[in-house]
Design a protein around this nucleic acid. Structure first.
Lengths: 242, 242
DNA sequence: CTAAGTTGTATATGATACTAGACAACTGGG
DNA sequence: CCCAGTTGTCTAGTATCATATACAACTTAG
């Protein structure tokens, strides 16, 4: 870094890669289209051609672009549209996009409610909870990692049930919860944690969309609360206002 | 980088800084609380103490923590809660948090609708538009940069009006739009662009929350569409499901 | 006052990141 | 075929990142 980039802590090639990725995501370059030549990109970002090559190499490795020697580099991509609404079911959303939804249990354990969790779930502090960490995929692409807490009184052994049915909707159905809805949803963003990066097959330093939500039953009684981390590069949330 | 960190493109000190910031944001360490000692943090993240010091230095520079020699490093922070609802008014949201909302015109220019913009606004392609780029602040802290497009037919010279009234609600009122509401909201995340980073006083490589939204009047006719970039470290979206 | 624990400063060394320039290998159009 | 434009490979030099070690300056508990 002999020129600008003054200590941002993010390598130049990474900034270029993110810039190109954004151009693709925003539709400046779309599927099948040819990117500008490496020399031209280098001029645009005012960096060395080698830096551009490194950026393109990482994008190619992730399957976003494909380089053809002597010809050019071409776009190869698409994002999952994810509606945030009152009835949010991962499997329905993914299925609607013509892809196969999958759930995968990472861990299930007993836990006790922190004051914060207790408030969200309408329980007393230190109430017994079941904590489920699960990875959700569309086809073979990891979409998000979610940590879910349920009251242990109402949903004993929810972890074992989830492992078998691989769907939170089905877990609730197993406990005779026929219908439920999203009571609150908070969206924020951050940088992926190391453990999540591995689960999501995401490079360190990549952005994640963070969704904290609580679901309630027909009589507005809290059922579960979830802290989910989505690979930002693979989804786009649709907020539907009524 | 002699050990791990294998080519993520994000410097170790930056990962540590982000990790600590997340711990603060998630409430692991709250306002006024003392962080673990530099040596202890170095052990936790398995990095050198100097790397931790650099991470803490950047957090201190941004005002998130304060170091006291001989004693320790202490937390100093808070985030803006930003509801995403049908009636979303920046000034009302910020005012409700007891802070003073401000708008600042960055640029206003004539533009023509791309096919995408035309569809959003219910216009014919290449229809004349007014394009307004504005910075929004709470007290003296930049919160977001938004690019707004309005039909030039209905809102001539909207840019000049905005410069005077510094509020999109007031611009619409100037053109006799008494009430309007959010018709659609899309939320995604990415890494801040260089130009936005300067406006938002944000370091390069930091995450931004991206909100694309369209507002309509009482008869569901599109009024304007906005592409806004929020400093992720300063806001948290509240999605309210009905 | 003392000792343990804290942040601040300095020097040295190896590994990466970025730049610079040159050339090879290949593609597509004239 | 030839040439302009493209991606692929190589060699160097400089700046930054990260580690290691040592010690100074300060705070707090005892």
């Amino acid at each position: 870094m002999s020129t600008a980039n003054a200590g941002s802590g993010v390598a130049l090639w990474r900034q270029v890669a993110d810039g190109i990725e954004r151009s693709i995501a925003s539709g400046t370059f779309s599927h099948g289209e040819k990117l500008p030549g490496e020399n031209e990109i280098a001029e645009i970002y005012r960096v060395n051609r080698h830096t551009v090559r490194r950026a393109l190499a990482t994008l190619a490795e992730r399957g976003l672009v494909r380089a053809e020697r002597g010809s050019g580099t071409y776009v190869e991509t698409a994002r999952l549209a994810y509606p945030l609404r009152s009835r949010t079911r991962f499997s329905e959303i993914v299925g609607a996009g013509g892809r196969e939804p999958r759930g995968q249990l990472i861990s299930a354990s007993d836990d006790v409610a922190t004051p914060h969790l207790a408030k969200l779930l309408g329980l007393k502090a230190a109430a017994p909870l079941v904590r489920i960490v699960a990875l959700r995929l569309a086809d073979r692409t990891p979409i998000c990692v979610g940590t879910t807490w349920l009251p242990a009184d109402r949903f004993p052994n929810a972890g074992q049930v989830y492992e078998r049915v691989r769907s939170m909707t089905k877990v609730l159905a197993h406990f005779d919860v026929r219908d439920y809805r999203r009571a609150s949803t908070r969206v924020s963003a951050g940088i992926v944690e190391a453990a999540d990066a591995a689960r999501l097959d995401l490079a360190l330093g990549r952005p994640v969309l963070i969704v904290d939500s609580t679901d309630v039953d027909a009589s507005d009684k809290p059922l579960l609360t979830t802290h989910a981390r989505f690979a930002a590069e693979r989804v786009e949330f649709l907020v539907e206002n009524s």
